[in-house]
Design a protein around this nucleic acid. Structure first.
Lengths: 113, 113
DNA sequence: CATATATTTCATCTATTGTTGAAATATGGA
DNA sequence: TCCATATTTCAACAATAGATGAAATATATG
């Protein structure tokens, strides 16, 4: 990931409504959720939600596909991983003890990746 | 980390100047850099830099201490790890294959944490 | 084809955020 | 004490971003 893509992704997540949406989608799994279902869960007006999903989509953090009348949105796990990787890149400048706190991440990932 | 702290941290990083500053500090290590040195490296005016450092500081992402006439800023690695952990929490809903892409993170952390 | 459902687009308004330069504060040294 | 260096604070301005409701688009069904 390059610098400006990281800024775009961070900006997309740096807002209450959008972070809430993204977390719902991350937890919902790769099939995703219909836009309307997301709106119901996070309690947003349709047009506000649509704008939020557009921002997340432009940042590459969610994907969408139509299914019948609904449009299903899903978290883009690869892009999310890219962003996390970018943030920790070159973190310790050759001194492993510096980024030791990052080891805690592993313990918090539910699936033990 | 709780929701609003995550939003604050993401907002702090979601801007070109501040992400640049943060990355400089992450790579500089725990001793940190003088504010003036940071300004020189990222090419910002002193007052703009100061405002940026304040935002990062309020988000808990950097710490500061005075040393002589300089004020040294350093990345807060623990808070950074907390943020990353928050983003991946409950990511796979019991299905490990969902967050498999996150495994790539490990390979990108220079010190192999 | 007409109607109902699902979502997006658009224009407008409001609020928030970033930048800038000048002045203020804090420290160290002659 | 006086001056130089380092950084922050402040006020004003400019730019950006989010919310809203109405209208538009797309799909499904009777």
């Amino acid at each position: 990931m390059e610098f400006s893509a990281a800024v775009t992704a961070l900006s997309a997540l740096a807002y209450e409504g959008r972070l809430m949406i993204f977390r719902e989608l991350v937890q919902a799994g790769p099939e995703g959720l219909a836009a309307g279902e997301v709106a119901r869960r996070v309690g947003m007006a349709p047009s506000t939600l649509s704008a939020s999903l557009t921002v997340l989509s432009h940042a590459g953090l969610v994907t969408s596909r139509r299914e019948g009348r609904s449009i299903l949105y899903a978290a883009a796990y690869e892009q999310m991983a890219e962003l996390l990787a970018y943030l920790v890149e070159d973190c310790c400048n050759g001194r492993p003890e510096v980024c030791a706190p990052l080891a805690a991440i592993r313990a918090r990932v539910a699936c033990g990746v």
